[in-house]
Design a protein around this nucleic acid. Structure first.
Length: 592
DNA sequence: GCCGTTTTCGGCCCGACTGTTTTCAGTCG
């Protein structure tokens, strides 16, 4: 784990303990914020410590500075240790239980001696939690259900699993006749790599239809359990164990609601603050003049009795805040509002910008389609080129090619390329980066190829120094064009190599090697943070599916999502370039 | 705990739903 994420965990832990102890809420909020910004930071925090620029980072003050510096120096934080010891360690995981928050956990601990999940389950079964102020039978039943839910679900679902579910429900929602507009919101719309729950927003043709639509939603065949249901909101759990929340709003408030529920929370906080500075207030109903809003009549579940300055579309709300439209993938409070204000938002890459796929497999190694089959489908997608890059010999499980088989395969690719008009086929290989950073083939073999993707597959538990040196050595090889899935991580499965990314970016930029955003779910490697760091450091990227079938080529969209979250433009992605420019890039190192 | 071109003190985004209550606290997003 990197230093940044270790520190992020420390601040998150301290915030959680403070919440349970019932300390001033804003302290906990401040530490949560520090935790989040450390997690998002793509340069090593050690650098900021050395430069003495720690408190220049908005959100880090004196206390946080002290904790970070101490941790960098000693690998520990006395403050964190002391705070952690002031509550039973077993209480922190209880925060994950839906319906159970820090206040109630604090009460259970102080008044009933609950120290961990086991105590809680016992106390619930024995009925010893009854009689506490503000806690009745229903509350206890809901906590029980929450525990059960948690034990069933594996935590956050990957976007590869959540997106199809969300799209299916959206389609169903749009088919309800009283529904005028419907949209996915939340982290799924922002295309985060993992999704806690799905948010759906819909507007009504007839504003009295709220309860009926809510009712219809809870009756969808995908719904396993109904968590709550009202005229403006319903929550369900699908058969996959995914929570889905529906919000129902009048048509004139649709844009404001979609904006609000798309988040992120931090983005919302920033734009609401901006609204306030401009003497306005922003909520899920719209953007209002502050003075008028305070006087207006408000009823629960209804828009305030006041004409909003903007509310029908997101763009209108942004415009009133003197901002251009901000793409959902950017809404993470990672500088997008400042960039929008300065007119410096990137023109984000779209799927239409992709001219080819530079990482794919065929039946020659572990793919299921032939060269021709892959080429035909790639051409049908409008691609100008496709690189066929089967595995090298170390990937025995994947039927990796020996040098001899590879050279025959190269000839077959060239032959297929002559036969199939309208798409350029590149003869390549996904060559293993071995444990010491050497490659699985000699340079003389690599020299026969049009393109070389070098990827780590095994020994993914190295320490930072060893792993970084390994990838750097591969980057230095003059035949390598792309580092495939650079960390080897798999969402919800394994962490991958703990690389010193700053060093990797610097070397890749210097040597003219592209870093891959592997679009295949569940890899999505580089992730958004690292891809952003890479382009910041002047690297170019390649967004590839690593397809093992013709269907696999469709997964490009997940890679595009990662790139968009990373502020990437088409110019920075080599497979958005024309064949002439790409060809120049692929050959530039060999002729140096 | 963090922040400040009205502030070094006094704020810190806003609303719905639920469960427990007769006016509100906790949780969630």
């Amino acid at each position: 784990m990197s230093l940044n994420s270790e520190l992020a965990d420390i601040f998150a832990r301290m915030a959680a303990v403070m919440e349970i102890k019932g300390e001033v809420a804003f302290k906990a909020i401040a530490f949560s914020k520090v935790s989040r910004l450390l997690r998002d930071l793509h340069q090593d925090i050690r650098q900021a410590v050395e430069d003495g620029t720690l408190t220049d980072i908005e959100g880090i003050g004196k206390s946080s500075q002290k904790i970070i510096e101490e941790y960098v120096r000693t690998g520990r934080s006395v403050d964190c240790d002391e705070l952690s010891q002031s509550v039973p360690a077993g209480l922190l995981p209880l925060l994950q239980i839906p319906g159970l928050g820090p206040k109630t956990i604090g009460v259970f601990w102080k008044q009933r001696g609950v120290h961990n999940l086991e105590d809680l389950v016992k106390a619930l079964d024995a009925g010893t939690l009854a009689g506490l102020k503000g806690i009745g039978d229903k509350k206890l039943a809901s906590i029980k259900q929450g525990i059960e839910f948690l034990s069933q679900s594996k935590g956050r679902l990957g976007i590869g699993e959540a997106l199809p579910i969300g799209l299916a429900l959206l389609e169903r929602l749009r088919q309800i006749k009283q529904v005028q507009q419907a949209e996915i919101a939340g982290s799924l719309r922002r295309r985060k790599e993992t999704i806690g729950d799905v948010d759906l927003i819909c507007s009504l043709k007839d504003r009295s239809a709220g309860p009926a639509v809510s009712e219809a939603f809870t009756k969808f065949p995908e719904v396993q359990r109904v968590l709550g249901q009202g005229g403006t909101k319903a929550s369900v759990v699908t058969i996959e164990g995914l929570q889905v929340d529906l919000r129902i709003v009048p048509p004139e408030n649709f844009g404001a609601a979609v904006l609000y529920f798309t988040g992120s929370k931090d983005h919302n906080v920033k734009i609401r603050g901006r609204a306030q500075e401009m003497s306005m207030t922003l909520n899920e109903w719209g953007l209002f003049k502050l003075a008028d809003y305070e006087k207006a009549a408000k009823k629960t579940g209804e828009a305030p009795n006041l004409k909003p300055l903007a509310s029908e579309t997101e763009a209108a709300v942004y415009a009133k805040l003197k901002l251009p439209y901000i793409d959902p993938e950017l809404r993470e409070d990672r500088g997008e509002i400042e960039a929008a204000e300065a007119g410096k938002l990137p023109k984000l890459i779209t799927q239409a910008d992709i001219r080819g796929d530079l990482h794919s497999h065929t039946t020659a190694s572990d793919g299921v389609a032939s060269i021709e089959e892959m080429a035909v489908v790639a051409k049908a997608k409008g691609y100008e080129y496709l690189a066929v890059t089967d595995h090298s010999k170390s990937q025995v499980i994947a039927n990796g090619l020996t040098a001899e088989r590879l050279l025959k395969h190269v000839a077959a690719i060239r032959k297929a390329g002559e036969k199939i008009k309208g798409i350029k086929l590149l003869a390549g290989c996904e060559v293993d980066i071995l444990v010491d950073g050497s490659l699985d083939f000699e340079d003389a073999v690599l020299a026969e190829l049009d393109i070389v993707v070098a990827s780590p597959h095994a020994s993914l538990k190295q320490d930072t120094a060893t792993a970084t040196a390994r990838i750097l050595r591969a980057i230095e090889n003059r035949y390598v064009n792309i580092i495939g899935h650079p960390t080897g991580r798999m969402i919800n499965r394994r962490e991958g190599l703990p690389l010193d990314m700053a060093k990797i970016f610097k070397a890749a930029a210097e040597h003219g090697v592209a870093l891959e955003i592997n679009a295949g779910y569940p890899r999505l490697d580089l992730n958004d943070i690292n891809a952003h760091g890479a382009i910041d450091a002047g690297c170019v990227l390649s967004i590839d599916t690593d397809a093992h079938s013709t269907d696999g080529l469709d997964e490009i969209g997940f890679g595009i999502s990662v790139a968009r979250r990373a502020w990437v433009t088409a110019k920075q992605v080599i497979n958005c370039w024309t064949w002439a420019d790409l060809n120049k890039f692929l050959n530039s190192r060999r002729t140096r």
